[in-house]
Simulated assay, not measured.
Amino acid sequence: MNSHSAETVNPGTAVLWDYEDQGHDPISTRTLGFWLYMLSDAMIFAALFAAYAVYVHNPAGGPGAPDIVHPIYAMWETIVVFSSVFVYGLGMVALKRGNRAGLINALIVAFLLGLVFLGMEYKEFASLYFAGDNMQRSGFLSAYWTIVLTHGLHMVFGLLWMFIMILQVIREGFTQNVVYRLLNLRLFWHFQAVIWVCVFTFVYLKGAF
């Protein structure tokens, strides 16, 4: 007889408990595959950082890194990104407790903070574009635009994913597929924060001097 059958089970956590009763953990198995994807993504960013290291000293008569990067502005972007990651983590606590409303609220706040970050990046690159400092002007600007915008595109994808998960949690609750996707999104969102730390350090902080 199942040890949980005689207990009062919280509907929000019943699905999670059922996973522990199985002979294997299907969520962990599927999450491993997502880790492999992120390793390949990390290799892409490593190549972009290597290219940036080569081109950062080739402004070709155009502006160099000290002329266009703004570390203080990027610091505020960093605070916004980490705030979004922190709030998402609070959502995972709500998931563990079976608190659907708490998870939904956390996802909404994390989503809005991600939008703020993208808005700040849009403002930064719009000013560069209208000043004529687009990616065609020099090798350095090509590398700069590519590495920052590649991260930005990942953030866009993460926000689309987060929006879909909000709808799925509202409609389906904590099914196995929903929990699996939320856990993978947590890994993905944390990964974007780690990549942004690298961008902030090597592009904005180092480039300012």
Rank of each mutant, 00 (worst) to 15 (best):
D25R: 05
F34W: 11
F200E: 02
G62W: 04
A65H: 01
P66T: 09
N10W: 08
S28C: 02
A50I: 10
I166C: 08
R186P: 02
T150Y: 06
L95F: 01
I79M: 14
M120P: 01
G152W: 08
W161A: 08
L107N: 01
L16K: 00
M120H: 07
K123F: 08
E172Y: 09
E7W: 11
T201A: 14
Y144S: 04
E124T: 11
L160W: 13
S3D: 13
D18T: 14
G158E: 00
G89L: 08
P11T: 12
I104L: 13
I147C: 06
A6M: 13
A6T: 10
H24P: 01
A101Q: 14
G158S: 07
V203G: 05
A101K: 12
G89T: 05
W161E: 03
M162D: 00
A143Q: 03
A193H: 04
A208P: 07
F34I: 02
R186Y: 12
A101F: 05
R181T: 03
V87F: 10
T13E: 04
S127D: 12
F82T: 03
V56L: 13
Y129D: 07
P66R: 11
Y144V: 04
T150Q: 08
E172W: 11
D133P: 00
V54L: 13
F200P: 05
G152C: 06
T201I: 13
G102K: 08
D25I: 02
F174E: 03
S84P: 07
L115Y: 07
L118P: 07
M38P: 02
G114V: 06
H57R: 12
F140T: 09
